[in-house]
Every structure is written in structure tokens, then in C-alpha cells.
């Protein structure tokens, strides 16, 4: 249709835009928006903590920090581990990637397990005043994100066995690892708010 001689412009060059690689942009925008929900919860936590007449439910004057701290160390270090997994994928070391990736998954699962132990040992519930509600809301909402992250990693691990999986780039692995860093950062803030600020 370009060589049409009825066209007044003879030397017309068609304009082109390549449309790929939007997924990462979209995903980053989504994460920014997601962080606002957490931000809203954090602000709510802060305001309630400062203003509430009764903060801890009766019979409780704080929560243990030791086990959650171990959990925190594991989750935060998994963020470095996943970085090395991503790096070995860039170097085309597929088995190295799978192995380190799987270690990250194990560390994430340990975190969820530790969280479960902590929940089952606590003497207050969702209904125990503002603190009870806030505690379970924040840790639960974050826990859901950790579980989502582990499931996504599982999906990426499965996909790494498919032929030609990385032909269109490593966008899946990159965004899951970004998500994992995000979950980590949120946990650090959460840890400071709930466990350290007592």
C-alpha cells in the first residue's frame, strides 16, 4: 500500500513503534499501588497506637521478639539468595538457578511456618481489642503476600523446565524476584512497627 502512486508523498516512511516489554512497567506500577494499601494499614496502626486508650488486651504487656527476629533474618537473607538465583539465570546456569531458587522457596516456607507457630502460641485473638485486630490484620495480610510469592516461585520453577521458556526474556523471574524484595521491605517496616515499637 506504500508504493501506491496516487499518494502525494512519494518518499513516505511508515512509522514504527515496538510494543513489547510493557509487562515490567505495568508490574512496577502495580507494586507501587499495592504498597499504598500497606502504607494505609501502617498509618492506621500508628494512629491507633498513639491514640488508643487501651492498646494491649488484658493480661498482655508485649509480645516476644526472639522467634520473629529469627524469622526476619531468614526472610531478609532470602532476598539476597533470590538475587543470586536471578544472576545465575542471567549467566545461563539453569541448574544453578533452579537450585538457588528452590532454596529461596524453602526459606519463604520456613517463614510461613514460623508465623504459624507464633500465631498458634499467642494468647489473644482477632477480637481482642485494636491491637489484636491490627496484629492479625497486618501479619495475615503480609503472610498472604509471602504465600503468593512462594506459589509464584513454584510456577517459575515449573516453567523453567519447559522448552524455549526464556525465548521471550526473563520477565517472569525478574518480576517474581522484584515482588519478593517488595514483600521483604514491607516485612521490615512491619517488624519495626509491631515488634520493636512496644
Amino acid at each position: 500500500m506504500l508504493s501506491d502512486n496516487k499518494s502525494p508523498t512519494i518518499n513516505h516512511i511508515p512509522g514504527h513503534v515496538k510494543h513489547d516489554g510493557h509487562n515490567m512497567t505495568g508490574f512496577i506500577i502495580f507494586l507501587c499501588s499495592e504498597s499504598i494499601i500497606f502504607f494505609a494499614f501502617f498509618v492506621g496502626y500508628g494512629i491507633l497506637k498513639v491514640t488508643a486508650p487501651v492498646w494491649y488486651p488484658e493480661g498482655i504487656d508485649g509480645i516476644a521478639v526472639k522467634e520473629p527476629l529469627i524469622n526476619t533474618v531468614i526472610l531478609v537473607s532470602s532476598s539476597f539468595v533470590i538475587y543470586f538465583a536471578e544472576k545465575s539465570l542471567h549467566k545461563k546456569n539453569l541448574w544453578g538457578f533452579r537450585f538457588i531458587w528452590f532454596i529461596t522457596m524453602l526459606m519463604g516456607s520456613y517463614f510461613v511456618y514460623g508465623q504459624y507457630i507464633e500465631w498458634s502460641e499467642l494468647s489473644f485473638s482477632l477480637q481482642s481489642g485494636v491491637f489484636g485486630g491490627m496484629f492479625y490484620l497486618l501479619t495475615g495480610f503480609h503472610g498472604l503476600h509471602v504465600i503468593t510469592g512462594i506459589l509464584l516461585m513454584g510456577l517459575m520453577l515449573y516453567r523453567s523446565f519447559l522448552p524455549n521458556n526464556y525465548k521471550g526474556g526473563e520477565m517472569g523471574v525478574e518480576s517474581v524476584s522484584l515482588f519478593w524484595h517488595f514483600v521483604d521491605v514491607i516485612w521490615i517496616i512491619l517488624f519495626v512497627l509491631i515488634y520493636l515499637w512496644q
Binding site: L48, G129, M134
Partner: peptide, 16 residues
């Protein structure tokens, strides 16, 4: 679920 984020009786803050 009976939480009290915004319930004054439970120490919550409706203005929040």
C-alpha cells in the same frame, strides 16, 4: 469478624 478498628468500645477510632 468482631474486630474493633473503628469501634470505640474496643479502643478503636471511628474518625480514622
Amino acid at each position: 469478624f468482631g474486630t474493633s478498628f473503628f469501634r470505640i468500645e474496643g479502643g478503636g477510632d471511628p474518625v480514622l
